[in-house]
């Protein structure tokens, strides 16, 4: 193996342009120097270690990377980190405190809304964006709101039930 090993070059310092961004992630203001081309999903995952945001397709189709951006569901694999400068981002890690669960998380567990779990964080955040706007959605409204998020395991029926379960729980919480 030695001959090829010698072919390996030593690191060369390069001039990489960076820009300082300041983003409020899960309620905490974070500052980083990033390459302008760095994707928001990669900043969250590699830069901040928030690996609950997954990247599945790189083309905004699968929605595994869905996060809330100023409260709206967006796909973080096709947003640059610099575009998030000055904005608020919520990831799955920010749905609830360390020892508690958000009703959406409870709903997904209770109604068996996940199997491999890879699409789940994105699904839950898309669901949160829906329920924040429409606390009492119909099944069709849930299906439409989640149609930017792909799941290969469940066939969606239980995901829809999970979201409706969460809607009910959230409503009963706000009523009490």
């Amino acid at each position: 193996m030695s001959s090829l090993f010698e072919e390996i070059r030593e690191p060369v310092a390069g001039d990489v342009p960076v820009r300082r961004v300041s983003i409020t992630v899960n309620g905490v203001r974070r500052t980083a120097d990033v390459e302008p081309r760095l994707l928001l999903a990669h900043l969250l995952r590699q830069g901040l270690g928030l690996t609950g945001t997954h990247t599945g397709c790189d083309t905004s189709n699968c929605g595994a990377c869905t996060v809330l951006f100023d409260g709206k569901a967006i796909k973080s694999c096709t947003m640059l980190a610099v575009q998030a400068d000055g904005h608020e981002v919520t990831t799955v890690e920010g749905l609830a405190g360390p020892s508690e669960l958000h009703p959406i998380q409870e709903g997904f567990k209770d109604e068996h809304g996940l199997q491999c779990g890879f699409c789940t964080p994105g699904m839950m955040l898309a669901a949160k964006a829906l329920l924040d706007e429409n606390p009492n959605p119909t099944e069709d409204e849930v299906r439409w709101a989640l149609s930017g998020n792909l799941c290969r395991c469940t066939g969606y029926q239980n995901i829809v039930k999970s979201v409706l379960w969460a809607a009910k729980k959230l409503q009963s919480q706000s009523a009490s």
Partner: peptide, 21 residues
């Protein structure tokens, strides 16, 4: 029975290959 593995997946605490550093 409700699934054991869900406890980490719903918190975004799964450990997929790309999560390992």
């Amino acid at each position: 029975r409700k699934r054991v593995e869900d406890n980490r997946f719903i918190r975004g605490r799964g450990n997929y290959v790309d999560d390992i550093v």
